[in-house]
Design a protein around this nucleic acid. Structure first.
Lengths: 229, 229
DNA sequence: CGCCGCTTGTGCATGCGTTCTCAAAGTCTT
DNA sequence: AAGACTTTGAGAACGCATGCACAAGCGGCG
């Protein structure tokens, strides 16, 4: 079993897609899938599926396809889903609230085991079956509940400090929902989800579709100098 | 003006970052920024900033940098943020609720002008200052309010049908939050945000960090050229 | 007025990711 | 048991994105 394989980042990002597709397939009591079928379910193309899976090992059978249960096991092992990951959510506003109640996390082994907010008025209130705790208790919470993953769902202004505190408390992976850039030490993993940015990207392509007739002259001498002479 | 410039996808995805960084800069009454400074604020490197911005045009001044206001205008024009984009959210569960109340959208010109749910019990209830409407009213809503962008915040099981209905109703850009693959005609833009997938990606790297006893050796030589025959 | 220092814009090299293609390797059929 | 058929796994080519390095261009200073 060749350990320490180097799996490209792009492949890692697609493994959860395959995982989900395989779960669906298993639910329908299908024993094997071809790369073609899996590709269809995951919304990618077949060659990519095969190459991605080949990074994990030669788990397919030529002429047949992949054993669904076996592949599920391999991918979940690779993704670290064979264990449960307790997570803490910092910031119990609209978004934090929704995330705390989001069933999709628990279903994949991500149990929300802590809800934290800086606002004293929120501390002590219940969300689902959890009680909101104080930001200052973060180190204790993280240690006691062996939390490795933190979710930042605060306003942008608080995000960097919260991230710092999470790192300080011992968290080594952070998922940031705040609309701002946060930096963390290199040994800490960081991913971000920015809702407004996704819309802006859509807006870019949308705008190119709708030739909105009344378009103002592109070069509408916008204020400042900067282009004179 | 050289219209129809082709802007690489990777660049488009970063323009909102620059936009946000520039807004912050403008708030501090700073008139010009260098690519270096902008890179720092956006969390990328300076060469990338310059290359990205060069796709928009030669808007910088050598020896000086970029005029903040001018660049803001150019980027917002390119991203289509000079106009307002009414959006409709389908699915008023936890997530839909949070999205409906999320201030970040409105701040960038994305006004939520419709909330739709298939559940008759939810129709008629108020969320913020909007009343939830019926799924069947989607065509009317989209047309009357000139909505081009739809947000899917339903459970996975409903997502594909909702997407189909959105397209049918005339929406041409969709942001999908449901944890499933949805397909749309090629002329419709589609982006997805999958919360659980982000956590799974973190889990992958997290697992490689924590040498959890029975696991593979902790250090997976990162610089390994791996290419054994 | 010319020189100097700064910052942009871009050509180029490099690396990563995707896709095409096909031999290898298995199953199924007869 | 052998040949036909199917599907994987990987080599190779291609294309996109990144990062380096530097000339071109601009403002400021002497």
């Amino acid at each position: 079993m060749a350990a320490a394989r180097r799996i490209p980042e792009a492949t890692v990002a697609r493994l959860p897609l395959y995982y989900r597709a395989l779960l669906d397939t298993a639910d329908q009591h299908v024993a094997t899938v071809s790369s073609e079928r899996l590709a269809e379910l995951a919304g990618v193309n077949a060659a990519k599926v095969r190459k991605d899976l080949s990074y994990l090992g030669s788990y397919g059978t030529r002429g047949v396809g992949y054993d669904v249960e076996f592949l599920l096991h391999q991918i979940s092992r690779e993704l670290g889903l064979t264990q449960d990951w307790p997570v803490v959510i910092v910031g119990v506003g609209n978004l934090g609230h929704a995330l705390a109640n989001y069933r999709g996390f628990g279903a994949r082994g991500f149990q929300v085991e802590g809800l934290v907010d800086a606002d004293p008025k929120k501390v002590g209130t219940k969300v689902g079956n959890l009680v909101v705790e104080a930001l200052d208790d973060l180190p204790r919470i993280v240690e006691e509940r062996k939390i490795a993953i933190g979710i930042v769902a605060t306003p942008a202004s608080a995000a960097q400090e919260v991230a710092d505190r999470l790192v300080q408390a011992g968290v080594s992976s952070i998922l940031n929902f705040a609309p701002t850039v946060v930096t963390v030490p290199t040994e800490v993993s960081l991913r971000k989800v920015d809702l407004a940015i996704e819309l802006q990207i859509l807006s870019f392509y949308q705008q190119r579709k709708t030739p909105n007739g009344d378009g103002p002259p592109a070069h509408a001498a916008p204020s400042k100098r900067a282009r004179a002479t």
